[in-house]
Computed example of a mutant assay.
Amino acid sequence: VSALGIGQQQMVEIARNLQDDTRILVLDEPTAMLTPRETSYLFEQIVHLTARGVAIVYVSHRLEELRRIADRVAVLRDGRLVDVRAMAGMSEDDLVRRMVGRSVSDLEHRPRRTAGPVVMSVEGIGRGHAVQDVSLQLRAGEVFGIAGLVGSGRTELLRLLFGADRADRGHVTLHEDTTQNTNTPAAATAPQAQAATKSVANAPAAVPPVRKRLARGFATPLQAIAAGVGLVTEDRKSQGLLLAQPIRVNATLSDLGAIASGGWLQRAREHQLVQGFVRTLGIRCQSPEQPVGQLSGGNQQKVVFARWLHRPVRVLMLDEPTRGVDVGARAELYGELDRMAAEGRALLMVSSDLRELMAMADRIGVMSAGRLVAVFERGEWTEQSLLAAAFSDSAGRSAA
């Protein structure tokens, strides 16, 4: 099971609990890594179980799912039960207001961001049958979304581009930064933590000169990070954070040189910098010395984001960045992604939540059977067209 992706692991875990003698079944974010097809299958099983008299406690931040399957809904906020009522007649806006105490804006109809120059080009990258000859371009100031079913190769693609797995074919090309230098180390002040790079949001979608062309991509994550490429992994607890270590250590781990002098860590400089990140990202904690494992999922994810504010990167890849994050924290993370894009970073975002991609992305590429089969511009896609592409295995339109 350890060799499976986290989405497939989740399906195995759900299957293990669908036992004939189960009387009460608690499902905690069961669809966080599942695509619509797997989610629909799970809901069919839930209907069968409830028909047999099984009581289901279903915990989810995906409010549309609660409307589909719940009879009653209980709302928790800051550890307190604030409401219990029948699901019938409840709208998503009503639930959101009860969950976070305010309304959260809908981003689905936002305009497209202005594409800047090409930052990184990928040509025919592949590894066995998991990722097959994928080509795409990432542009400054733009969010490129990746959709697809579980097992379609989305996570595998990001791991290849980050050097966590080695590609056996293809090239990755890094282009010159035609704007002012954005790779200066973060200093120990909160304002610099908030603005790590200069804005190139209005730059033309040109292809700058080649800085470096790598056969088979990066050999290691260290090489990728040194080149200005970062990754927010899909499983923050096992791959992204040191849970027993404090926020301070986790946030600055990406660039110890920025908080060191003469080979010695400067604790005062580190503390000042991390305090700035806590304020900027709204991390709810007792202090920067609190172990990350004691934080909520949303605040843990903010600590991961702080790491890439501490070490500014030109390309940031995000694998399920809002997995297990509540509605309020999710809106705050979306705001941080908007700020990163406005600063000129190129963002590559994988998500199993089509509504999330449709709200945040400027382009959405769809993967199926290891191939990038289609790329849609904002305004072109519908949920139906994205799903149709995800179920196909034929070549789609150009990804450039």
Rank of each mutant, 00 (worst) to 15 (best):
G276C: 04
G276D: 00
G276V: 01
G276R: 03
F277I: 01
F277A: 08
R279E: 15
R279Q: 15
R279L: 08
T280P: 03
T280S: 13
T280H: 14
T280K: 08
T280Y: 12
L281G: 02
G282S: 09
G282K: 01
G282I: 09
I283W: 11
I283V: 15
R284L: 12
R284P: 05
R284T: 15
C285G: 08
Q286I: 09
Q286V: 12
S287N: 06
S287C: 03
S287Y: 00
P288H: 03
E289A: 08
E289N: 03
E289Q: 05
Q290M: 14
Q290V: 08
Q290W: 11
P291R: 07
P291N: 11
P291Q: 09
V292C: 07
V292Q: 07
V292I: 09
G293E: 13
G293P: 14
G293Y: 13
G293H: 13
Q294F: 13
Q294H: 15
Q294N: 15
L295N: 12
L295V: 14
L295Q: 12
L295H: 13
L295F: 13
S296I: 09
S296C: 13
S296K: 11
G297V: 10
G297Y: 13
G297H: 11
G297S: 14
G297N: 12
G298H: 08
G298L: 08
G298A: 11
G298T: 06
N299W: 13
N299I: 15
N299F: 14
Q300R: 14
Q300N: 09
Q300W: 12
Q301K: 07
Q301L: 10
K302C: 08
K302G: 06
K302A: 07
V303W: 01
V303Q: 06
V303I: 07
V303F: 06
V304E: 07
V304C: 12
V304H: 10
V304D: 09
F305P: 02
F305A: 06
A306H: 05
R307N: 05
R307A: 12
R307V: 02
W308L: 08
L309M: 15
L309I: 15
H310W: 03
R311M: 01
R311E: 01
V313E: 03
V313G: 05
V315R: 02
V315A: 03
L316G: 02
L316S: 01
L316R: 01
L316Y: 02
M317G: 00
M317Y: 00
L318S: 02
L318C: 08
L318D: 00
D319H: 04
D319G: 04
E320C: 04
E320T: 08
P321G: 03
P321Y: 00
P321H: 01
T322W: 11
R323H: 06
R323G: 02
R323E: 01
R323Q: 10
